[in-house]
Design a protein around this nucleic acid. Structure first.
Length: 552
DNA sequence: TCTGGCGTTGTTCCC
DNA sequence: GGGGAACAACGCCAG
């Protein structure tokens, strides 16, 4: 997808626009921006017979100026698109990126835009202010990203700006995989894995950007100061307390540190034996999984860097190691698969018009008051099922839940119990998840709701049975639902069954007006009804397809 | 075109 | 407690 327009001869500076890829390691777009700025310096030198350009003198050695821009868009700073926890993580990551750039003689210039429609104008204005004639950024194949970048492309063309883009958010440039797949992305992990095997390993990570960045024209001089700095949570109108639950530190150094710490667990044996379905969803103090997803989602960690290190750790062990789809490399392939689909299937992020998504007559909270009430109870951890509510409480507080916990709550919200459209659940996850990534969010919600990829709709997570199996002492529930902390284990999964005396002794009242709600639905009853509804939806879907192929 | 094998992560019951 | 089958049985895809 790289429209590598050559820079205008003897042109001005380069504007690098960070969106994701908030890092200096393995950052193809940033490396290209640096290369272009330095190449322009060469052009200038030969054109003027050597000598600097007035901006030089610094570590850039007289290169053309290279501005580093980040635009805080409203979807990144305001609810319901973003919650406080993810915003805090983003701001920490931006501050860390600014530090990395400053250590290399440059600096990040942050611009806040309050109306999403103004992003293109803000980019053009920034380019004009720093005299840039070339704009460089990383591809973004999300629906919102594509829409935004089309507007930016038009504005850039109108302003005479050359646009250069690079792929960097996935292991492979999506176009490369799509070409190899004959233009149609596979629909199963097995088929995707064999596609990747055919294509071969991803390109190795590129070198980390060095310490001689061309000087930044933006934010220098009189208009500098507070204007271009990373704002605080408070300055963006948020209560810092709302983000107090954040448990991972933002920034590239923290990401690489966390990655290496996990890779080093038991000398790499944990990585080599990793099987995602066997990891514990209730290990909240020290998660059983890497918790690198927030970094991958924001582009603070390069997937290719993680992939390369995983392969090294696998190769360092003499014995066998686990394989996709359950291994850690497999986890990167799931991410890759959903990104490929999201970039190539129309309306991947929603039900309507999405050819991959089974059309199931869900209740829609935006038009149905009863569904809205069920959705609100689910989203605020008030379903009365401690297994579901503990996960949702963890999500609200920390922005992170183990993958299987997400399965449990997503199955409950859709085909299992509440019969809510997966789009409603996905919207809640968009607000609350630290590692929210539109491609993965939509893909996983379709999976869990048996709208695509997964078809065994009769396999329903039981909020009582499942939790009893994975958390036999109820520790996870007690931690995230303190109201239930003193309830005996015999009642912790079904608090409404606790006799009044037990409730009193545990200092909790269950039910209307109490400390913890009665169950919002009877799982044993509704799950059976819903399986029947799913069966019907599957049958009518098959009928529709038969009609279609009959017509064709 | 048809078909058998398979699918990262369910529950219950039985041995 | 661990393993396997029944439950009622889906769609994708490689051969």
């Amino acid at each position: 997808m790289s429209a590598a327009a050559p820079p205008p001869p003897g042109g001005g500076g380069v504007l690098h626009w960070f969106r994701r890829a908030l890092r200096v390691h393995d950052n193809p777009a940033l490396i290209e921006a640096v290369r272009l700025a330095k190449a322009k310096k060469e052009e200038r030198s030969s054109a003027t017979g050597g000598g600097g350009d007035g901006h030089g003198g610094g570590g850039g050695g007289g290169a053309a100026p290279l501005a580093m821009l980040y635009i805080l868009e409203p979807t990144a700073t305001t609810a319901p698109h973003t919650g406080a926890v993810r915003l805090r993580f983003l701001l920490e990551s931006l501050t860390a990126l600014d530090g990395e750039l400053r250590a290399r003689g440059s600096a990040l210039h942050v611009v806040r835009v309050t109306d999403g429609a103004d992003v293109a104008a803000a980019v053009a204005a920034a380019a004009a202010r720093c005299g840039a004639t070339t704009l460089v950024y990383e591809d973004d194949d999300s629906p919102a990203g594509r829409e935004r970048d089309a507007a930016v492309g038009a504005a850039a063309a109108a302003a005479g700006l050359a646009v250069v883009t690079r792929s960097g958010h996935t292991l492979y440039p999506p176009a490369l995989l799509l070409d190899a797949a004959g233009g149609v992305a596979p629909r199963t992990m097995a088929a995707f894995t064999s596609l990747v095997d055919r294509v071969g390993p991803p390109h190795p990570p590129l070198p980390t950007v060095g310490g001689d960045l061309p000087p930044p024209p933006l934010g220098d001089g009189e208009e500098a100061a507070a204007d271009g700095e990373v704002p605080s949570l408070a300055a963006l109108g948020w209560d810092a307390d709302a983000a107090a639950g954040l448990r991972v530190r933002g920034g590239e150094a923290a990401a690489l540190e966390r990655m290496e710490a996990f890779l080093g667990r038991r000398g790499g044996a944990v990585v080599r034996a990793f099987e995602k379905p066997k990891t514990s969803m209730v290990a909240w103090r020290t998660p059983d999984t890497t918790v690198l997803s927030p970094y991958l989602a924001a582009g603070v960690l390069s997937p290719r860097t993680f992939y390369a290190r995983l392969r090294e750790v696998e190769a360092a062990g003499h014995g066998r190691h686990t394989r996709p789809p359950v291994s850690l490399v497999g986890q990167l392939l799931w991410r890759e698969h959903f990104h490929l689909l999201a970039g190539s299937v129309p309306h991947f992020g929603r039900v309507a018009g999405n050819p991959l998504c089974r059309q199931i007559p869900w209740d829609d909270p935006s038009t149905d008051a009863a569904a809205a009430a069920r959705h609100a109870a689910w989203a605020t951890a008030r379903t009365g099922y401690p297994a579901v509510d503990a996960c949702m409480a963890q999500l609200r507080k920390e922005g992170w839940v183990h993958h299987l916990g997400r399965h449990l709550v997503a199955c409950f919200a859709t085909r299992g119990d509440l019969w809510l459209s997966w789009e409603a659940g996905a919207a809640t996850f968009e607000e609350l998840l630290l590692d929210w990534d539109p491609a993965l969010n939509a893909g996983n919600w379709m999976w869990l709701s048996a709208s695509a990829f997964f078809n065994s709709y009769f396999r329903v997570y039981g909020p009582v049975t499942w939790m009893r199996k994975v958390d036999p002492e109820g520790k996870f529930i007690r931690h995230y639902l303190p109201a239930l902390a003193r309830l005996p284990t015999a009642y912790i999964y079904e608090p409404w069954t606790a006799p009044a005396g037990v409730q009193k002794a545990a200092g909790v009242r269950i039910g209307d007006g109490g400390d913890y709600p009665a169950p919002i639905v009877d799982h044993a009853v509704v799950s059976k009804i819903n399986i029947d509804r799913m069966a019907k939806a599957f049958r009518s879907g098959a009928a529709a397809e038969n009609t279609q192929s009959g017509l064709a």
